[in-house]
Amino acid sequence: MEFVSITDQEVELYKERFNLELGWYMSVCPMKVIENDKEIALIDCSEGMYGDDSIQIEQFEVFEKKHGWGSKIINQAIQDLSDYRIFVYVNDSNSKAFWIKKGFKPVDDGTGTEIYCYGCN
Rank of each mutant, 00 (worst) to 15 (best):
F3G: 03
S5H: 14
I6K: 05
Q9I: 12
Q9E: 14
E10W: 04
E12A: 14
L13Y: 13
L13P: 01
Y14T: 03
K15L: 12
N19G: 14
L20K: 15
E21W: 15
E21L: 15
W24N: 04
W24Q: 04
M26E: 04
P30H: 11
P30E: 14
M31H: 05
M31R: 07
V33C: 08
V33T: 03
D37L: 12
E39Q: 07
A41C: 00
A41E: 02
D44Q: 08
C45D: 00
M49I: 06
D53I: 03
S54R: 06
Q56H: 05
Q56P: 01
I57P: 10
I57H: 09
E58S: 10
Q59K: 10
F60G: 14
F63Q: 02
K66I: 00
G70K: 02
G70D: 02
S71V: 06
K72D: 05
I74T: 13
N75G: 08
Q76T: 08
Q76F: 03
Q76K: 11
I78T: 03
Q79I: 11
S82Y: 03
D83Q: 12
D83S: 12
F87I: 01
Y89A: 03
Y89H: 11
V90I: 13
V90R: 14
D92V: 05
S93K: 12
S93V: 06
N94W: 12
N94C: 10
A97V: 13
A97N: 13
A97Y: 13
F98I: 06
W99F: 13
W99Y: 13
K101F: 02
K102M: 06
K102L: 04
G103V: 00
G103Y: 02
K105Q: 04
V107H: 01
D108T: 02
D108P: 02
D108I: 00
D109V: 04
G110L: 07
G112V: 07
G112R: 07
I115K: 03
Y116F: 15
C117Y: 07
Y118C: 04
Y118W: 10
Y118K: 09
G119V: 06
C120R: 04
N121Q: 10
N121G: 02
